[in-house]
């Protein structure tokens, strides 16, 4: 369990706590006001200065060891801000975590508040100019996005029922996309996205700059060398470069430090050599989200 589970998990994982989805919490956290303000300018988040800091062009700074560490600490504080005075600009209180498809489906089937809608992904539009319906959002979040024509996909049923939404999510996972669940704002949960590296801003921030906008899953991959036949199908299934092929050993090498625990490589493996295990059961990566 990560820090969010301890604070908002009620004894379990944060995204399995039913309270985090409810309308009452949306009211308590001013979610409507927050989402209204933030969604209007969400596609500007890469170019909007937040507390005087502009992300555009600051990558060099983030990559220099000392300056980078200080800047990252400040950004993380903003992202994880739960205080009543948080501003609704930039991405205050916006935080997500990778999760395997089983957990994502469970949320859609049991916890997400209706109406459930599928929307164009903001990140892909920002990064590629591509309109791709990949983001499942719930409750008040859906009602606000209804006002934003550029996010509403053509030819997609609106709203969807739970079964349709789950099937959508599963088909995305089969295509190799990574499920992520989002606080919007902390601790109100209002979205499950299906992302890829590097077109997702969240993955990008985390993977390239080590900014805590996105955490790795509560799980990590476990590799059984006895079952691996060296077919290498899993290598191209991993969005994070955690798997590579060793011609000498004729099997796959796994870099646990790079594994985000999405579980997508399992779909590619015909020999069940890859399984997910709880992150905290593996000493090497325990507590490292």
């Amino acid at each position: 369990m990560c820090e969010w589970c301890l604070k908002h998990g009620d004894g379990g994982k944060w995204y399995f706590n039913a309270r985090n989805y409810q309308k009452e919490l949306a009211e308590e956290t001013n979610a409507v006001e927050h989402l209204n303000d933030i969604l209007k300018v969400f596609d500007r988040s890469g170019v909007t200065p937040v507390y005087g800091m502009k992300f555009a062009g600051s990558g060099y700074k983030l990559q220099t060891p000392i300056v980078g560490r200080v800047v990252k600490r400040i950004i993380n504080r903003v992202l994880h801000n739960e205080g009543p005075k948080r501003k609704h600009i930039g991405v205050d209180g916006h935080f997500g975590q990778v999760l395997p498809i089983e957990d994502a489906s469970y949320i859609i089937e049991n916890l997400a508040t209706e109406p459930l809608t599928l929307n164009y992904c903001v990140c892909r539009y920002m990064c590629r100019g591509e309109k791709d319906a990949r983001c499942l959002i719930f409750g008040v979040h859906s009602e606000i996005v209804d006002k934003i024509p550029r996010y509403i996909p053509e030819n997609v049923k609106r709203p969807m029922d739970r079964e349709e939404a789950t099937r959508m999510l599963e088909s995305f996972s089969e295509q190799g996309l990574v499920s992520t669940v989002w606080f919007h704002p902390v601790p109100f949960i209002s979205a499950i996205c299906s992302c890829e590296n590097p077109d997702c801003m969240g993955i990008r921030m985390r993977h390239d700059y080590d900014i805590g906008l996105l955490y790795k899953a509560e799980y990590v991959i476990q590799f059984n060398p006895d079952l691996c036949e060296g077919l290498r199908a899993c290598v191209s299934a991993c969005q994070f470069g955690a798997l590579s092929f060793s011609p000498t050993k004729d099997m796959v090498n796994v870099d646990l430090d790079k594994c985000y625990g999405c579980g997508n490589c399992r779909n590619a493996c015909q020999h069940n050599a890859l399984t997910l295990v709880p992150r905290n059961d593996i000493k090497q990566v325990a507590g490292r989200y």
Binding site: D43, R44, V47, Y125, M126, C127, R128, G129, P198, D199
Partner: peptide, 17 residues
Amino acid sequence: CTKCLKQCDRPVFHLHH
């Protein structure tokens, strides 16, 4: 257009209003 967004591998660019 969006050609530069699609062509760049990383991608370095953002499209925004």
